[in-house]
């Protein structure tokens, strides 16, 4: 390009064009900053969020919740007696695209005298990694606590599955067109019209309790306080990954029940800190841009000088 600019006043052109570029970049940078702010206010710091408390000492592993979930989400459902088949507990199961929730059974240990059954589904994090990671923002953390997925936006990149600390989102690998990311939506459509989540509604022993998260925490702690010998003294989900809408109490340590070693810091925390660092109001990229521009300009001038001198030398 240097040859082409030669016949104009290089300095003026450079400055003029540089100014245009800067203005354009600033304009672009404003939009993502705004969307970030919105995300923070409406979706994370919400006091009205609901949740579910799962009590592993009560769950009997009847798998009514699995069936109810399938019914509520219009998946093909078998007869209720097929769900009484306990041979499925021989292997550890995970949610799948047509099964948002599964119950797993663990042999008795500690103070528990009978097998411990644990339900698995989306934890509905207070600060969901999937929502933070999604390339198009197809996940929404609602005021009600539910984290839902929008089929109209998703491009099927599966980054949510990489990001999720609980490995919950599942993908319809067998579909060539419109494969979906499938995960528990805390029965968003049901709760919107005042119903309670299908699994909670159908649990015969009330191992699942739906209610405001704060209230559920009190209930969980009350349970532990009342039966200190029956429970492991920890409410899983109170602080894990910055808190989750689903809370768990169990008779044994949670690592024994295959709960992942997630830690208390929100899963998207570090990533968002890095992102905000790199894109702090687009200043770092612009600074780099201007610096490189400056370097280029200086070098151009130096080069031309040398060239001119060489040319002059040649002429002589």
């Amino acid at each position: 390009m240097d040859e082409k600019v030669k016949n104009q006043n290089p300095r003026r052109t450079f400055l003029k064009q540089f100014a245009v570029g800067t203005a354009a970049s600033v304009g672009v940078s404003l939009i993502p900053t705004k969307t970030e702010a919105k995300f923070k206010d409406t979706q994370r710091e919400n006091e009205t969020r609901m949740g579910v408390l799962f009590d592993a000492t009560l769950c009997a592993g009847c798998r009514n919740c699995e069936r109810a979930c399938k019914v509520a989400h219009n998946f093909p459902v078998d007869d209720i007696e097929t769900f009484r088949d306990r041979s499925v507990y021989k292997e550890y199961r995970r949610p799948s695209p047509n099964n948002y929730t599964v119950v797993n059974e663990f042999p008795p240990s500690g103070v528990a005298t009978f097998p411990i059954d644990v339900k698995v589904q989306c934890m509905h994090c207070n600060e969901p990694a999937c929502a933070s990671a999604c390339i198009v923002g197809a996940f929404t953390k609602h005021a009600s606590g539910a984290v839902t997925w929008n089929s109209d936006m998703c491009i099927g990149c599966r980054y949510c599955m990489v990001a999720c600390p609980f490995q919950i989102p599942t993908f319809e690998y067998d579909k060539a067109i419109q494969p979906k990311i499938q995960k528990c939506d805390l029965c968003f459509e049901r709760t919107k019209v005042g119903k309670i989540p299908a699994c909670v509604e159908n649990c015969p022993v009330g191992a699942l309790t739906y209610g405001p998260r704060e209230e559920l925490l009190l209930l969980a702690k009350e349970k532990i306080e009342r039966h200190p010998d029956k429970y492991y003294h920890h409410v899983f989900g109170e602080y894990e990954v910055g808190g989750t809408s689903w809370l768990y109490v169990a008779p044994v340590e949670f690592s024994e029940l295959k709960f992942p070693p997630v830690g208390d810091s929100p899963a998207p925390g570090v990533t968002e800190a890095i992102q905000h660092g790199i894109f702090a109001y687009f200043i770092p990229p612009l600074a780099l841009f201007s610096w490189l521009g400056g370097v280029m300009y200086v070098n151009n001038r130096k080069n031309k000088k040398i060239e001119n001198e060489a040319n002059e030398g040649e002429k002589k």
């Binding site: 022993v205 009330g206 739906y210």
Partner: peptide, 15 residues
């Protein structure tokens, strides 16, 4: 929510 509903209460008693 501190008081279980009737169905839960029954089943817990039995189970």
């Amino acid at each position: 929510i501190h008081i279980p509903d009737l169905e839960s209460a029954y089943h817990r008693m039995c189970l």
